[in-house]
Design a protein around this nucleic acid. Structure first.
Length: 297
DNA sequence: GGTAGACCTGGACGC
DNA sequence: GCGTCCAGGTCTACC
């Protein structure tokens, strides 16, 4: 058994990160109402453990039933730090939010961090699978990919074969478009996911390098748009996950919220959504994301 | 640069 | 139970 503690830049609330968006409902994440987020990770040595994350004083407690060697311990620490965005400082955003009635809740709740997958590849696949479908459809497709192609948990915890990691790019590249279409039922998205997996696994596309990229926001947006299956909404959503808040992911839901908040229910386009948050500068997507829309939902 | 139509699935609805 | 319609972003062809 392994237990470690990882400190977070304050303020930090584990619950706020987990519930920052719907990712916690997608496998291999598994949320338990007792406050534990379980997931399955692939570590440096090839080990595939079930890992539990919980709130702890000043950070997060990470446990797994496996005894980890030093390299895996460092890998686990790095993956969890990335997934929960533990090192990001939101004080600049909180300073601005303090003067906005619709964002009074963000600092007390320590909101701002978004739950991420351990790899950007996984977040890209999941983001593409949110487009042009219902949330139920996204959950079904992600579950199918994990169930069909994810590496099973190793060790004692994996004996029943029920838990799997998210499939790697290399594994998905080994499938065919037909399998992804007919077995995983990805529909017309199947060639997009297959091409992305091939590009990433071959090394032609370095998506993980974007995690620590210094690329300006506009260049990053254009770079993401070059990926087939990634349009304006998906690129902006991925930028949000990368901690670059320049672009608002405008989907039908965003247009509906802005329409009801400021336009009396009249249909609005992307221009109207963006213009409403222009004054938030490099924090505009976060301001949109965390805006108090409660009375509309 | 802007626009129309196709892509695919599952849910809602009418019969 | 079956058929039809619709919603959800992105891509491609066309103007």
């Amino acid at each position: 058994m392994t237990r470690l503690f990882i400190k977070a830049v304050q303020p930090f609330k584990f619950h706020s990160v987990v519930h920052s968006h719907g990712w916690y409902q997608l496998p291999p994440f598994l949320w338990d109402a007792d406050g534990t987020l379980e997931t399955v990770l692939q570590l440096f040595s090839g080990l595939v453990p079930v890992v539990q994350l919980r709130e702890a004083e000043g950070g997060v407690e990470v446990t797994t039933g496996e005894d980890l060697v030093d390299e895996d311990l460092a890998d686990l620490r790095a993956q969890v730090t990335w997934m929960l965005d533990l090192e990001r400082d939101f004080s600049g955003f909180y300073e601005l939010a303090r003067h906005e009635p619709k964002l009074q809740h963000v600092q007390p709740k320590a909101q701002g961090r978004l739950l991420r997958s351990p790899t950007l590849f996984e977040d890209m696949v999941k983001t593409i699978l949110t487009t042009n479908t219902s949330w139920a459809g996204t959950k079904r497709m992600v579950a199918a990919l994990v169930g069909l192609y994810g590496a099973p948990v190793t060790g004692r915890a994996g004996q029943d074969g029920s838990r799997r990691a998210f499939p790697t790019a290399a594994r998905l590249a080994q499938t065919t478009v037909r399998e992804l279409r007919e077995d995983a039922r990805l529909g017309y998205r199947a060639p997009y996911i297959h091409e992305l997996a091939e590009e990433v696994s071959s090394g032609r596309l370095d998506v993980e390098g974007l995690k620590n990229s210094e690329m300006p926001a506009d260049a990053l947006f254009k770079h993401l748009l070059k990926i087939r299956g990634v349009g304006g909404y998906a690129a902006a959503h991925l930028m949000l996950l990368l901690g670059c808040y320049d672009r608002i992911p405008v989907d039908s839901w965003a247009r509906k919220l802005v329409s009801e908040e400021w336009y009396g229910g009249e249909a609005v386009g992307e221009v109207q959504v963006v213009s409403r948050f222009e004054s938030w500068g490099s924090w505009r997507a976060l301001a949109f994301w965390l805006w108090n829309w409660d009375y509309l939902e």
